[in-house]
Design a protein around this nucleic acid. Structure first.
Lengths: 146, 146
DNA sequence: TCAATATCCGACGCCTAGGCTCGGAAAGCA
DNA sequence: TGCTTTCCGAGCCTAGGCGTCGGATATTGA
């Protein structure tokens, strides 16, 4: 079980824009270079974030991207879902290995485990905002420890 | 973020053996057929589970596999780690994209989030045993809901 | 009006790892 | 001596993660 670069980079990029603040657009290429990320790839990710309504873009010279909302109103989960389409995929939902077990009428004691896991992951990721991430690592550590 | 078939099948297989009970060996092929899983693949998974000490095997005719311990002492996390090597991989631990950020002296506010997420996932998966999973789906659902 | 700068967007290419198969060696029964 | 079964490495196929590229469109400033 792992997080992809879509989510990881998506968060780095969003966080960068959050720190930038305001509505002055930052070009994708500048952002990528300053974060040490592949430029073309960052562009793809910003496109996804824009389609999800998390960032806004300005085209043409002097254009770029800026955050669409207040960092406090954007959660880690929001960014991950925008970048990765999902936070956690329940296997048996996607691949019905055995219909008599995985179907709606089946009885599979594993399903509740995955569902609950998904719930807790989402809960955790929803509870952290971009504003939270603008602090020092040590502060975030304290904040996040329940 | 998703669970692989290694973990999913590993759990199905372990659970099957738990229900079987006792020390009478069940052949991998029989198990696979009754669970509707690919036989050769199940064999690989059982091998992993054996190496992790979760199941024991008897070679030769009339041989097969049985659970090494009481189902109550084996958690979902145990099985997943045996089958998948890890429950949750923290991205920046595996791939240091940017040394000044991801290195030990770097300051990355994302790390605490992943670490805490990992902690909570492990906590959840440790709290459910194979014995718990031997119940009906609806019972497990109630059990697991915190 | 032209050149430079950016976003926009689809398509494609590499490579890893997940998911599964195969073939054969060793071990234990009948 | 067969038959069954575990053991184990090797290999195959595909999807998807991870990026790259090329060109169209929009905007700015000279």
């Amino acid at each position: 079980m792992r997080v992809t670069t879509w989510a990881e980079y998506g968060l780095i990029v969003s966080l960068h824009l959050a720190k930038e603040g305001g509505e002055t657009p930052t070009p994708a290429r500048d952002l990528a270079e300053r974060e040490g990320l592949p430029g073309d790839y960052v562009e793809q990710i910003l496109l996804k974030l824009r389609r999800a309504g998390l960032v806004k873009s300005v085209r043409g010279a002097k254009g770029g991207y800026f955050l669409a909302h207040d960092p406090q109103t954007i959660s880690v989960k929001d960014v991950m879902e925008a970048a990765e389409n999902r936070t956690f995929e329940v296997y048996c939902d996607a691949h019905r290995v055995n219909l008599s077990r995985c179907g709606p009428n089946g009885d599979c004691s594993l399903r509740p485990v995955w569902r609950e896991l998904q719930r807790r992951i989402d809960e955790m990721l929803s509870s952290v905002s971009l504003a939270d991430l603008m602090r020092q690592e040590s502060e975030v550590e304290a904040l996040v420890a329940q």
